[in-house]
């Protein structure tokens, strides 16, 4: 039997740990499993409602507005990168389409010269001043509370991605994979990425689904989100969309079906693909503001979104509203 002297039993000496090694281990795991960190929104000097902005973005993600936080492998989608979006197209994806595919980070280094830093603004006039763009106004459906309106501006964001064959080899080795070798003309090539500026409007507060009991899971989330902005524009210092497509779609982890869908995009340099996770959302083409857009509904019926591109800008309307209401809001923007 053990000595019941609890001090002696429990007061074991502390173990020696190698914190830096442990940190490397967790870094590798986060990269391998493409785990995104939760980032606190930067403090806005003008308004205290930053948390609402963050919740708004979370809500946008939750209705699959544009798979913002879906950790789809960046690999397949990156082919769209050398481009300026003029139209949008839905690309259905399943978890098996990108099983095992890891983050784009394994192909090189991304350096944010101007990281995304959303700020809260008190009204649409300030949003226009801060973003330098005309902000479209919507006719809101009955029941959407305008007294809880919030506005955010995402200033222009820029980043540079540099491909690295060496980094790719090292990442593949860690994953015990043998991907096709990176062509010499891609190794060291740079992509210059700019996104924004953009403006997001949040209205109302989502209510719990009918019949739900207990805490409202949507508490604090906006009922309606209207977003507009300059879509991501990517420039390359030499490598072409076709070269990148050929290389990236041959990577392990990209399903032939997904590769075929990407190749089928007629004009990859001007088409913004909207990844639709088919197990949680459905999509269809719709006409909105006179152009083709993608309507996305999540399978719970709680939320929907419509996304389109017009006159050099990308627009999205999302919320816990019906399809008819979302479309009416989208078409009312002026």
């Amino acid at each position: 039997m053990m000595d019941p002297n609890i001090d002696r039993i429990m007061n074991t000496p502390d173990v020696q740990v190698d914190t830096e090694r442990a940190l490397s281990r967790i870094r590798e795991r986060v990269e391998r499993e493409r785990i995104a960190p939760v980032i606190s929104a930067p403090r806005a000097p003008r308004a205290p409602a930053v948390s609402l902005w963050v919740k708004g973005l979370a809500a946008a993600a939750s209705v699959a507005i544009i798979a913002v936080l879906l950790t789809v492998s960046g690999v397949a989608e990156t082919i769209l990168t050398i481009f300026e979006p003029k139209q949008v197209v839905a690309v259905p994806i399943t978890s098996s389409d990108f099983s095992g595919a890891t983050g784009f980070a394994q192909y090189g280094t991304l350096v944010w010269s101007t990281p995304p830093q959303p700020i809260d603004v008190p009204d649409l006039a300030t949003a226009e001043r801060e973003s330098g763009m005309k902000v479209l106004r919507a006719t809101l459906p009955a029941g959407v509370n305008t007294t809880k309106a919030r506005y955010g501006v995402m200033p222009r964001t820029t980043a540079t991605f540099t491909f690295s064959a060496e980094r790719t080899r090292a990442s593949a080795a860690r994953l015990q994979r043998t991907p096709p070798p990176m062509p010499a003309n891609i190794d060291g090539a740079k992509l210059f990425i700019t996104g924004g500026p953009g403006v997001v409007q949040f209205y109302g507060e989502a209510t719990a689904p009918a019949g739900a009991t207990g805490a409202n899971p949507l508490s604090g989330m906006p009922m309606l989100i209207i977003a507009q902005g300059k879509g991501p524009v990517v420039q390359s210092d030499g490598v072409t969309v076709e070269q990148l497509q050929q290389y990236l779609l041959a990577q392990p982890g990209i399903s032939p079906q997904l590769a075929a869908q990407i190749r089928a995009i007629k004009d990859p340099s001007s088409t913004l693909p909207i990844p639709i996770p088919v197990d949680v959302a459905t999509s269809k083409n719709v006409t909105v503001q006179g152009v083709q857009g993608v309507f996305v509904g999540d399978s719970t019926g709680l939320g929907s979104a419509v996304i389109w591109s017009k006159d050099g800008l990308v627009y999205g309307v999302a919320g816990t509203l019906t399809e008819a209401q979302i479309m009416a809001v989208a078409n009312s923007l002026h």
Partner: peptide, 13 residues
């Protein structure tokens, strides 16, 4: 727009 930038960020890396 913010979502687009965020989307870009999610997609690229």
């Amino acid at each position: 727009m913010g979502a687009a930038s965020e989307a870009l960020r999610g997609v690229v890396a």
